[in-house]
Amino acid sequence: MTAEGARGGAVRVLIVDDHPVVRRGLRTMLEGETWVDGVLEAATCAEAVGIASTEPVGVVAMDVALPDGDGVEATRRIVQGRPETRVLMVTMTDDEDVVGRALRAGARGYVLKDTDPDVIVDALRTVAGGGLVLGPRVGPQMLTSLRRQPVELPPPFDRLTPRERDILRRLAGGDTNARIARHFGLSEKTVRNQLSAVFAKLGVADRVQAALLARDAGLTG
Score class of each variant (00 low, 15 high):
88 L>R: 01
149 Q>A: 15
118 D>Y: 05
133 V>W: 00
60 V>S: 05
90 V>W: 00
147 R>D: 15
102 A>Y: 02
59 V>I: 01
150 P>L: 02
137 R>M: 07
92 M>S: 09
63 D>I: 14
77 R>W: 02
154 P>N: 04
133 V>Q: 01
106 G>V: 06
91 T>G: 00
45 C>T: 11
77 R>T: 11
102 A>D: 09
152 E>Q: 12
101 R>P: 13
62 M>R: 11
81 G>V: 11
80 Q>S: 12
152 E>V: 15
90 V>H: 00
115 T>V: 09
149 Q>S: 14
131 G>C: 05
77 R>V: 09
116 D>V: 10
99 V>R: 00
60 V>E: 03
78 I>F: 04
68 D>F: 14
140 P>M: 04
113 K>F: 04
59 V>D: 01
139 G>L: 04
119 V>M: 12
154 P>T: 12
154 P>W: 01
103 L>S: 05
91 T>D: 00
109 G>D: 01
94 D>T: 10
129 G>D: 08
114 D>T: 07
83 P>T: 03
104 R>D: 07
92 M>F: 09
115 T>A: 10
64 V>W: 00
53 S>A: 15
82 R>K: 12
106 G>N: 03
149 Q>W: 08
106 G>Y: 01
145 S>M: 12
68 D>E: 11
132 L>K: 06
77 R>F: 03
133 V>L: 02
51 I>R: 07
120 I>V: 13
76 R>I: 13
122 D>F: 03
135 G>A: 03
115 T>C: 08
151 V>R: 15
66 L>C: 13
121 V>G: 10
128 A>G: 13
68 D>M: 13
84 E>H: 07
148 R>A: 15
68 D>V: 15
114 D>M: 05
83 P>A: 02
63 D>K: 10
139 G>V: 08
79 V>S: 06
82 R>I: 06
115 T>E: 11
63 D>M: 11
120 I>S: 06
152 E>R: 13
87 V>S: 01
101 R>I: 05
76 R>D: 10
144 T>A: 13
143 L>S: 10
125 R>P: 12
104 R>A: 05
78 I>G: 11
124 L>Q: 05
61 A>C: 09
62 M>W: 03
156 P>S: 05
46 A>P: 14
53 S>F: 11
131 G>K: 02
46 A>T: 15
60 V>C: 07
83 P>L: 05
74 A>V: 10
50 G>P: 15
134 L>H: 02
55 E>W: 13
77 R>K: 10
119 V>C: 09
69 G>A: 12
75 T>R: 01
147 R>M: 15
57 V>L: 04
46 A>Y: 02
48 A>E: 07
54 T>W: 04
47 E>R: 04
122 D>E: 10
52 A>S: 14
72 V>K: 02
45 C>G: 14
131 G>M: 04
93 T>M: 08
48 A>H: 07
